[in-house]
Amino acid sequence: MIEVVKPGLETCIQDFPGRIGHWNRGFPPSGPMDSWSFRLANLLVGNPAGAAGLECQILGPTLRFQRAAVVAVCGADMQPTLDGAPLPAWESVAVAQGSVLALGAAKLGARAYVAVAGGVDTPPWLGSRSTFHKAGVGGMDGHALRAGQVVPVARAAGTPGRRVDPAHRPPIAADRVWTIEAVRGPNDDWVDEAGHARFLATDWKLSSKSDRTGYRLEGPQWTFTEKATDKPPEHGSAPSNILDQGYPLGGVNLAGQTPIILVNDGPSMGGFINPYTVPTSAFWKLGQAKPGHVFRFRAVGVEEAQALRREIDAHCSEASLVAAGAR
């Protein structure tokens, strides 16, 4: 059991891959934004890679362990401390009953993950413990953690003293510019060639109005093909309007002139085009980017995107772990 002393900024319970199989009724998968760091944190403590843990955003929580536990913190650098002393990240550590884990503001990256041996043991909703704040589903009472709550954890021995080999960690860089892969489609034929060239050449700024439903990007205007203007009236009047359609996770959704990348808690359908889709292999970067950072898009094909996904999956394995003392 973990007592929430300070909740941090929207710290929430997530599992991986989240609430899958309910997209046809409008439930998004939720789950950790950076599932690479999340899975490694779980593996470190001896959990299955997808077990429920905590996602900490921008400002981390302070947690008191009501019984001894094995924990690991991965992802953004939130300067974690255990009873006031620095706690190494990317390592599984045994903590004594009553000890306090405190995460601060994210210095590098935006989201840190706390895994606890046994996994968070809240009741699953539609097959997942992931929190979907917007609809009050999953997690603790459907929402982010609040001070005073006690988060249940299943009992497990855990595996302290392990560390993620740096070569297998997501390369969260100090610069503010991210290269994000993007696959053309499904609605790429609504945008003209100048529009495609502009999308790939622009330094897009990540808006502060971004959250787990969508990442808004600030940049130039879009230009369209005839298809965007010469269409049946049920598509709507703006060039980027289309007859309502299912949205893929990662769709670069063009709401009027503003591209919004649809992320883990995003809408399942709607009436705007998705000229590009950000593949799952780039989601860890979205999870670690902060408002004001710059996105540069790199066009990749479906197969390249799938190969990148397999590379990340390979990093999320026992083979990436070494003894904590090892270099």
Binding site: G185, P186, Q245
Partner: peptide, 14 residues
């Protein structure tokens, strides 16, 4: 139509 690494969209009309 392709939609990233794990989705596709099948359109029957417009």
């Amino acid at each position: 139509l392709p939609a990233g690494d794990c989705h596709l969209l099948m359109e029957f009309g417009n």
